[in-house]
Amino acid sequence: MRKITMWFVATVAAVVLLFSYRTSTSGPGPLSRPAANAPGIVSGPGAVPSGAAEPSGLTGATVVNGTVEQTRWGPVQVQLTISANKITEVKALQVPDGNRHDIEINSYAVPQLRAEVIAAQGANIDAVTGATVTSDGYIRSVQAALDSAHFTG
């Protein structure tokens, strides 16, 4: 099953790697910038208040935060909603927003990430063509979220 997850992640990564051209003249945000959303499971059957137990299964919707990934353009963090072993929603909790151009790019990249994650799991679509704007920070955060949800595809 791990392989399936990796296939899925790789498929997502196809459209989700880092802003492929320079969008910002501001550097990454300071590493000490506080993460408002702690990585790990936020709610759902997999939630473990003590952090000690393994989630037993994913029968209902689980909301899980990815890690905060530092990219050249600033911190990136995603949140996934997993229901019946499918990712049903992808949100960006943090994206680089150092200048107007970043915000413009994000307004495009985030919905694209959403479409790709959800489309990647649809049995009927193999690939998406589009003029791509993407982030490898996103994919690392997505992978971390999948790992903490013990998502196996």
Binding site: Y108, P111, Q112, R114, A115, A119, N124, I125, D126, A127, V128, T129, G130, A131
Partner: peptide, 11 residues
């Protein structure tokens, strides 16, 4: 099977 992305509503 290839999806063509909507450039306006990119999701």
């Amino acid at each position: 099977r290839v999806g063509v992305q909507d450039p306006i509503r990119s999701d």
